[in-house]
Design a protein around this nucleic acid. Structure first.
Lengths: 210, 210, 210, 210
DNA sequence: AATGAATGAGACTTCATTCAT
DNA sequence: GATGAATGAAGTCTCATTCAT
C-alpha cells in the first residue's frame, strides 16, 4: 500500500493572481470535503467550484491527494501553532493549571474548523498522510515532557504509557463530542472541559481506591 | 451525504453452493479492504478475487456499499456478542470486577480482526453506516446502566457524560494502541489493561485532589 | 525510454460475440491508422469507429499501444507465414531460383497490406515494438543460412555482412517503391523484381570489375 | 492527413539575445527528441528545457510542428551541403572514384547526428514534411545524372530505376547499420563502405552471371 | 521581448451496473 | 443460478495555445 505518487505542490504561485487561484482551489476543496463529502471530491469539481480551469488546478497540484495534503498541512500547522503558543505556560506550572491549559488547547484545536478537522482526520488515515501523526507525536512528546518534570507527584510509573493514554483519551472524547452534535454550538464545552480535567487529574494524582 | 441506495442483501442464499458464493465474496471483500486498501475495492475485483462472476455478485448484493455493510454487520454482531456475553457478569458485580470485565471486552472486540476493524471503522463513517454507531450506543447504554446501579459510590454526577467519557477514552486508547503496532503481538496488552482500569477507577471513585 | 506499460491483450475473447468485438476493434484501428493517420488514433475514436463502447475496448486491450502491437503481430505473423512457406524452396535450390524466390517473398509481404505495412513499420519503431525486428532477424538468418550452403560459389567473405546488405537493400527498395506510388497498381513490379534479382546476383557472384 | 497549420518560423530573430533564444529552443527540441522520445516532446517541456518561457517560444515558432520542421531543415541543409560539396568531384570522374565519393557522402550525412537523423526521419514521415523527400529527390537526380554520362559503360538500361535502386539500397543499409548499433562508434564504417561499393559497382558494371 | 498564468478540449482509463445467453 | 460481455458516465490528467502584465 505504499504509494509513490507525488503529493507535494507542483510549483509555488509567484504572481498575486496565482496566489488567489491557489487559495480558491484550496477553499473549494475544503468546501466540497465538508459539505458534499469525500466521494464528491474530484479535481473537476474542485476546479469548477473554485471558478478555475482544470488546467490551472494541475499547474499547482499534481493530483487530488495533493489537495487534501495541502489542506491538512495548513490545518495541522494551525493546530501546532496553538500547541506551541501554550507550551510555555505549561513548563513549571502547577499540575492543575497545566492540565487546564492542555485540555483547553485540545478543545481549541478542534474548534478551528470542526467539520473540516473531522474529514481531514479520516482522509489522513485513508491516504496515509503523516501530518496528523506528526501532530499527535508532538502532543505526546510535550505531555510526556511535562509529566517527567512532575514525576515525583505522579502515580503512574510508565510516563510514556501515561502520555499515550492521556493524549488519546482527551483527543477522542473531544472528537466524538463534536461529531455527535450536528450543531457545534450545542456542545457543552465547559462541562466537557471540567470532566476531562477530572479524568486527567485523578488518573495522575490518585491511587486507585478500593 | 444521505444516500437512498439500497444496502441490504438482495436475497438470502438458499443452497449450500450459494452460501459458499456469498462467503467467498465477503472474504474477498475483507481481503481487498485489508491488504490492498479501499481504493482498490471494486465490485469487479471482488468477484475476480472471490473466483465468482460479477453477475453472481450482483445476485446477492445490490451494490458495492452492501458488501461493506454486510461485512460491517458481521463484525459488529461479533462485537455485540462479546458485549452481551459479559453483560450479565457486570450486573451487581463489585466495581473493580465490572471495570475489569468491561476493559477486557473492549480489548477482545478489537482483537477479533484488528486490521479489518480499523478499515471498517473508517468506512462506516465515510459511508455513513450506522452499525458501528449502534455498537457504541449499546456500549454507552450498558456502561451508563451499570453506573446508575452504583450511583452512590461514584463521584461524577452526570452519568451520561461519564459513560460518554469512559466509553470513548477506552475505545480510543485501545484503537490507537493497535494501530500503532505493526506487529500486533508486540502490544503490552496486560499493561494497557492495567492502565485503563486505573484510569476508569480513579475517575469514578476518587475526588479530584489538590 | 524503457517502458513498463503492459502491451499484451488483457484477456482472450471466449464467446463468439467477444471475438467479433475484438475483430471490430482491430479493424477500426487499422482503418484509422491507414486512412486518418496515427495522430488521429485514440482509444475513443477506435471504439467509436468499431461501433463498440470504450469500456469494451479496455476489456481486451490495456491501452493504445496494445492495439498497435496486436495489429503488428498479426501482420508480422502473416509475413513470417509467407517466409516459411517459401523457405523450403530455397534449400538446395540453384542460386538464381533461390534469389527469385526470396525477392518474390519480399514483394509479397509488402503486398499483404501495403499502406498498413508502412504505418505499422513506423509505429514499431516509435513504440519500440520488437515484432518487426523479429521478422528482420528471421529473414537475415534465413538468407545467411542459404549463403553458407553456397559459400564456395559466392564472392563476399563476410556472409553476415552480405546478408545484412541484401536483406536491407531489397527491403528498402521495395518499401520505397510502394510508398512512392499513391496508386499502388502503377508500380512496375516485374521490372522491380528483375532489377533486384540483378542487384543480388551480381553482388553475390561477380568480382568487382575494373 | 494534409494540414493547413503554418509551419514557418514567425519572425526572424534580429537581436543577438533573440538568436540565442531560438538556438536554445532548437537545441532543447533536439535534446528531447533524441533522449526522451517524441512522445515527451511538448512545447511546455521544450521551453522549460531551453530555459525560456513558453511565451517566448511562441514568439518564434507558431506551433509544435514548426520546431521539428526547423530542426529538420537545418539537418537536411547540412546534408545537402555535403552532397553539393562532393557533387563536382563526381562529374567526369571514373566510375570507381565516383562511387567511392557517393558512398562516402551518404556515410557522412548519417554521421552528422545519427540519432537525431533517425528521429527526424520518422517525424518527417509522420508529419508529412517534405524536406527529407527533397534530399532524396536531389540525391536521385544527381546519381541519375552521373549515370547518364556513363550510359555506355553501364549494364542497366533504365537509369531512373537504377538510380532509385542505388540510392535507396545505400541509404537503407547505412541507416540500419546505425540503428543496429547502440554505440555509433562501434560501426565498422570501412567494411560497410567497401561492401556498398562492391554492391554498386557490380550492379552497374557486371552482366548477371549464370 | 519576455514572462508565466490561465485555458479547455480531449486523451486515457476505471468501474458500477445491466443483460443476453 | 451462473456467466461474462457490454455499457458509458465520470474521473484523472496533459498539453497546445493565448493573453494580460
Amino acid at each position: 500500500m505504499t504509494t509513490t505518487t507525488p503529493r507535494k505542490p507542483r510549483k509555488a504561485p509567484r504572481q498575486a493572481r496565482a496566489k488567489a487561484t491557489v487559495e480558491a482551489i484550496l477553499e473549494a476543496t475544503a468546501h466540497i470535503l465538508v459539505d458534499e463529502g469525500v466521494e464528491r471530491l474530484s479535481t473537476n469539481r474542485v476546479a469548477q467550484v473554485a471558478g478555475v480551469s482544470i488546467g490551472s488546478l494541475y499547474q499547482y497540484f499534481p493530483n487530488k491527494e495533493a489537495l487534501v495534503l495541502a489542506l491538512l498541512e495548513r490545518h495541522v500547522s494551525k493546530m501546532l501553532g496553538l500547541l506551541s503558543k501554550h507550551a510555555t505556560e505549561l513548563i513549571g506550572a502547577p499540575m492543575e493549571d497545566a492540565v487546564t491549559s492542555y485540555v483547553r488547547v485540545v478543545l481549541e484545536t478542534h474548534q478551528i474548523a470542526p467539520r473540516l478537522h473531522h474529514v481531514l482526520t479520516l482522509q489522513a488515515i485513508d491516504l496515509d498522510l503523516s501530518a496528523l501523526a506528526d501532530w499527535e507525536a508532538q502532543a505526546r512528546k510535550m505531555v510526556q515532557g511535562y509529566l517527567e518534570t512532575r514525576r515525583d507527584d505522579i502515580v503512574p510509573d510508565d510516563l510514556e504509557m501515561a502520555a499515550f493514554v492521556l493524549v488519546h483519551s482527551v483527543e477522542a472524547v473531544v472528537h466524538r463530542a463534536i461529531i455527535k452534535e450536528d450543531d457545534v454550538a450545542a456542545i457543552p464545552w465547559d462541562r466537557l472541559e471540567k470532566e476531562l480535567k477530572a479524568l486527567i487529574l485523578r488518573y495522575l494524582l490518585s491511587e486507585t481506591p478500593g
